[in-house]
Design a protein around this nucleic acid. Sequence first.
DNA 1: GAGCGTGTTTAGACAGGTCTAATCTATTTC
DNA 2: GAAATAGATTAGACCTGTCTAAACACGCTC
Lengths: 233, 233
Amino acid sequence: MELSPVAQDYLKAIYHLEDEHARPVRTVEIADAVGVTSPSVTNMVETLDEHGLVEYTPYKGVELTEAGETVVLNLVRKHRLLETFLTECLDVPWTDVHREADHLEHHLSDELAERLVDFLGEPATDPHGDPIPDTDLVVADRRSYTPLTEYEVGETVVVERVPHRDRDVREHLFENGLEPGTKLSLEAVTPVGIVEVVPDDVDNLVAIPTQVARRIGARAISRGETGLDESNL
Amino acid sequence: MELSPVAQDYLKAIYHLEDEHARPVRTVEIADAVGVTSPSVTNMVETLDEHGLVEYTPYKGVELTEAGETVVLNLVRKHRLLETFLTECLDVPWTDVHREADHLEHHLSDELAERLVDFLGEPATDPHGDPIPDTDLVVADRRSYTPLTEYEVGETVVVERVPHRDRDVREHLFENGLEPGTKLSLEAVTPVGIVEVVPDDVDNLVAIPTQVARRIGARAISRGETGLDESNL
DNA sequence: GAGCGTGTTTAGACAGGTCTAATCTATTTC
DNA sequence: GAAATAGATTAGACCTGTCTAAACACGCTC
């Protein structure tokens, strides 16, 4: 049973939407994510259901089955491996990596993926700080990072993970110097849902909607930690 | 005008068949090469003709236009770069490289191809000894090698290029120890069209049809050249 | 609990690429 | 130069994935 790249994209979208909203996914949400109309989605989820990859209840929503999740995790693994390869070896700009990997992931064989792992030295996370599922598709921690929103105003933290699926978000953060590894101090949390931070190597205030800040991962810097002495995990 | 991978495969097949037979290509030959039926070919070459990529005369045959050749050379470039990457970095067995590259070549962006060139150190040939077209799609020498058939019985030569598009041929040669770099001596040329050689690291006689031998590239070994002293080009 | 709006599904058409069956053309053979 | 044959094309069907337009269901409001 060979799954078309298009079908795989639907599954991926369902996976990420499920993850984001923590409830069955609506037709129109999938349509937006994949870039098609709602009837196309109904069509496709029906066939995915027949293949046992999703559970589809008309008018109610869609959920991934275990088989569907396996397909997606395999894809996620390849995606993140490719991203790692593209940044580390080919020097592709941070912001373009996602797009390229999105195409290639469908055409990288399982065997090549394994070889790529070896070549890259079994990386644990991709360049955005997201964990790479292992050969058995187990993800170390599906959401291991501590969201920026968990920290207090005045604290200084190091960015560990950055959201990147949305192009505008990704580029905005990038342009403001927010990458994995960036050190920043939490300046304020406004009542209208904005988190204000000052990145280390930029001097101005950057405003981030809490919705985005919730998906930025960070770890606290110990009081003494000033510069590059980061040997602890 | 985005060309589908399928259409690109047709163009590639036409290119290689033209190259092989040095005359307009027949429908059924394309059908065999691509793995579809003749009517499908007629269909496709009509649309390729409309796009100005081939010149198609019903009942006569198909020829690539310059635009078509550009498309193919871009593909050949990516194909050979990928093959180089797969063997050199990922250690993919010689015999599997072609299949993998055939899939991936359609999905490697131009930009990524350029980056891959840099990463690989601007290789001139792929692992089979075929030249890689440069950025402007100029192939140094489309057929630079001297065919094995040009040498005399009794001579000892080093294999420089090996045919690999046909799976059976490729694996047969591989199993008999014929790879780029193999040293072999020409034992006999039989009247029925067989060239017999003895590879250096194998001890038995290998029989090769002249049709295949014609596409094996080799260079003569100077009398004195016995082992590994190969510093000349 | 009737009406309404949002979101979903059905119906039907279309585009790309494929197939089989049937027809046609070129070329070879006599 | 007519018949036979190998190869090519047309005709028509099918599958996948997409669309628009129209019908439908659910949940909310009054």
